[in-house]
């Protein structure tokens, strides 16, 4: 557990350092994700080491946005009349993007002969 946690933090640290020093457009943790993915693909035994800790964190992923979520309650007043517009934007774009993504996937799968098995 100690080693896996250290590996997670080291990847994030390397990602943050790379994002700042090279002023890359990606957030540090996303670069850390890509570094971790490269390590997992390069050393399959590494996946067994990471699995318990990664699954532990990911199984309660939604807990992690509670603190930021609580902050929005104080934010609501400053949003005022924009709240309705934001709700409409979120609902509209969610319906559109699910439809567009699924139709694209199905169409390209048919063209390339990739089957659901």
């Amino acid at each position: 557990m100690l080693h896996a946690l250290t590996a997670l933090l080291l990847c994030q640290l390397a990602g943050e350092a790379a994002a700042r020093s090279l002023s890359l457009p990606l957030p540090g943790p996303v670069l850390g994700l890509m570094l971790m993915l490269a390590l997992l693909a390069g050393f399959p035994r590494f996946a067994a080491l990471m699995r318990p800790v990664a699954q532990g964190i990911l199984s309660h992923l939604s807990l992690l946005f509670v603190p930021a979520g609580v902050g929005v309650v104080g934010h609501l007043a400053t949003l005022g009349g924009q709240t309705t517009a934001l709700v409409l934007a979120v609902v509209g774009s969610t319906v559109l993007s699910i439809a567009a993504g699924a139709v694209t996937f199905a169409a390209v799968a048919r063209l390339t002969g990739s089957r659901d098995d």
């Binding site: 957030p27 994700l33 971790m36 990471m50 992690l64 603190p67």
Partner: peptide, 16 residues
């Protein structure tokens, strides 16, 4: 809890 958002992002590499 908020701090764990970063390590959790890195951990997404495993399901990927």
């Amino acid at each position: 809890v908020h701090f764990l958002l970063g390590p959790a992002t890195v951990a997404l590499a495993l399901p990927l």
